[in-house]
Design a protein around this nucleic acid. Structure first.
Lengths: 229, 229
DNA sequence: GTCTATAGAAGGATAGAC
DNA sequence: GTCTATCCTTCTATAGAC
């Protein structure tokens, strides 16, 4: 009996996930969810009381899935360059499997900003800043690395990874016009994004510490090639 | 009489713009639009026949506004670095005044991909590629510059500019936790984004043409400072 | 052109039988 | 737990007076 409960509730939850992802809170219909779940509309209310509550459950699960993908970056046993490569490879691969997720989450947060509060509690920007400084301070300009810079760098990296999925409607149209494949774009992007960011960070470091820079420049160039397996 | 017509139609259009931007097509209510316009609900149908038609009119205007901001970049009388600086300064300044625009347009395109077709007609990626190659081929690695690379570079630049506005709900929450101002972030971003991209492009060029690179590296470094007025 | 009144349909939610 | 039937509200859209 409990197993069957579980199954029905799960069927509803999965159907709701599918419909909310595709249509958003406002565009979703309880009837559509019931149809996809293969059950009666009343059962939705039996299990989740209201559309709002059902949506909240789905949103929390999906938002947690999305946000959790940023945590592993803080593991201490990787160089900055390897972290950047690892992040783009894994993050873009994840988004390829969940391409509707970012726009959904961002859109629903925009509609109701309070939804983000629960997730912000887990984010400690200052701790992140200190950790990055400790692990990669020298590679990022030493004590000159301000919290503003960390916010700029981090938001830039996230932008490069996520935005193409947010704009995939346009991107797909543009690519089609020049006979490029959607999937090829993202395969290429995993490496391109990493090298782009690594190059930018290296260049910023060069500019802020020009004395060290001119000495270590070729050393750095070799590093790029070395990690570029 | 015609003047009054114009005024009413404009009032409706502006009210509709405001409501659709805030709530999206599905969340918007004709009653809200009528209230803000200060007229009767029936008048909406008198002027625009249906919610769909009213939405289409608003969407086309707004999407055109957003897309038109990419065109000036092709003017031939600027160096690549100045174009990058010009783009981020102007584009981010524009989005600061229209921060709800990107998420609205991207979201509605996602709901109905056919909406983007009309605007793709004006985009010739191959022409853009050839033009960039002609104007900045040497700065970007010469004939090695493929159409794939141009797509990657362009989408990266656009990502860096637009994404923070798409994610401004999260961004605002994160910034508040470390006592940073929303406006300061975007003021800083105009310059940060430009130097980040310029550094990345320079680095990519260095890697692909290492013989030229080692010779021109310091020359380029000065250029960065020179344009950084 | 602008309003009032209302049609007509759809959607969320509940009552009650099984 | 699951279904049928139905209530009630909301929303788009139209008819018709002025």
């Amino acid at each position: 009996m409990e197993i069957k409960d579980k199954l029905t509730e799960e069927k509803i939850f999965e159907a709701a996930t599918q419909v909310f992802l595709a249509k958003g809170m406002d565009g979703a219909r309880m009837q559509d969810i019931a149809d996809i779940a293969g059950i009666n509309k009343s059962l939705l209310h039996y299990y989740f009381r209201s559309k709002d509550k059902l949506f909240d459950a789905v949103f929390e699960k999906l938002a947690k899935t999305l946000f959790s993908k940023f945590i592993p970056v803080l593991s201490p046993d990787l160089t900055l360059e390897d972290k950047v490569r690892f992040f783009f490879r894994e993050h873009i691969a994840f988004l390829q499997q969940n391409s509707a997720l970012p726009l959904f989450v961002l859109n629903e947060i925009n509609r109701k900003p309070a939804r983000v509060q629960k997730f912000l509690e887990n984010i400690d920007v200052k701790l992140f800043w200190e950790t990055v400084k400790k692990q990669h301070g020298t590679e990022l300009g030493g004590n000159a690395l301000s919290i503003d810079s960390i916010v700029q760098i981090t938001s830039t990296i996230i932008s490069i990874s996520i935005f193409p999925f947010v704009a995939c409607g346009i991107l797909e149209g543009v690519l089609k016009k020049v006979n490029l494949q959607f999937d090829d774009y993202f395969e290429m992007r995993k490496e391109f994004a990493a090298e782009f960011v690594i190059g930018a960070l290296k260049s910023m470091n060069l500019n802020s510490q020009s004395t060290i820079a001119s000495g270590s420049e070729h050393e750095n160039s070799e590093k790029v090639t070395q990690y570029n397996k």
